[in-house]
Structure formats: structure tokens, C-alpha cells
């Protein structure tokens, strides 16, 4: 498809305190219908969006962290997490949920969608964007 564009979503906010994270997720899901090349970047407080074991019963809000594991079904499988942002927050890859997709070109093997990246790599990803959306 020659008209495929690269969409990069920059996610920099923690979930629940503000509406950015949920808004971004909804736009990603809606945008997935257009079958474009989609990359999600999580940096700064955005890395909190992907933590596992989120339990929102106490704050009376919808726990939308479960929805991230549906992204693979939507062919959104390029998820880049800033390693330094995790480190600054005392977090590691083990603190994040596992997000996977089935690789059509590799006999539907289940693969991880998450890639730890440096700030330099994020600069490259941003540079590759035809459309850049910031949340």
C-alpha cells in the first residue's frame, strides 16, 4: 500500500490524574481502523500507563489499562518505552504488563509488542512520523 502513512503517538502523561492517556488510547483504537503504520511511544510519566496490576476500584474510575492488551488484535504492535523514564521512576520492564501480538508473517507466533528504547531512538521514531500526535 503506497498510501500507508506512519502515525506516531507520543504518550507523556500518567493515567487517571488527567484525561490524556485515555484520550490517546481511544484515538489509537479509532485510528487503527485505517490500517496505517502505527507506533506508540511512552516516555516521561507516560510509562505509568503500562504498569501491571492497576486497580482503580478505590478511585472509582474505569481501569482502562486492560485495553492495552487488545492493541495486538488491532494490529498496533510497535510499542516503544523510554528506558530512562522507567529508571527515573524506579521502574523496570518487569513492572509493565506484557503486550503481545501474533505475527502473521511468522506462522502467527506470539511476540512482544514492547521495545525499550533510548532517547536517541525516540528521536528517530519521531523523525519517521508522517503524522505525529501528542498526548
Amino acid at each position: 500500500m503506497s498510501d500507508t502513512k506512519t502515525f506516531v503517538y507520543m504518550n507523556r502523561k500518567a493515567p487517571y490524574g488527567t484525561v490524556y492517556a485515555l484520550e490517546s488510547l481511544e484515538v489509537v483504537l479509532i485510528g487503527a481502523a485505517f490500517e496505517q503504520n502505527v507506533k506508540l511511544v511512552f516516555m516521561d510519566d507516560g510509562v505509568y500507563q503500562l504498569t501491571k496490576n492497576q486497580d482503580t476500584d478505590g478511585i472509582g474510575m474505569k481501569n482502562f489499562s486492560k485495553t492495552y492488551s487488545a492493541l495486538g488484535d488491532y494490529d498496533v504492535n510497535q510499542i516503544y518505552v523510554c528506558e530512562q523514564s522507567l529508571k527515573d521512576r524506579g521502574l523496570t520492564l518487569d513492572d509493565l504488563q506484557e503486550l503481545t501480538y501474533e505475527d502473521e508473517d511468522d506462522d502467527w507466533a506470539e511476540k512482544s509488542s514492547i521495545h525499550l528504547v533510548s532517547r536517541d531512538q525516540i528521536a528517530e521514531i519521531v523523525g519517521s512520523a508522517d503524522v505525529l500526535l501528542n498526548f
Binding site: L29, A32, A33, K62, N63, F64, K66, S69, A70, D73
Partner: peptide
């Protein structure tokens, strides 16, 4: 129940 969303038609059909 699992994902907290209703799937898009394309995703529903595949699943």
C-alpha cells in the same frame, strides 16, 4: 470483561 472495550468489526470478525 477482558479488555474493557467493545471490539471494532474487523477485530470482532477475526476473533
Amino acid at each position: 470483561e477482558e479488555y474493557q472495550i467493545a471490539p471494532a468489526v474487523r477485530v470482532l470478525t477475526k476473533a
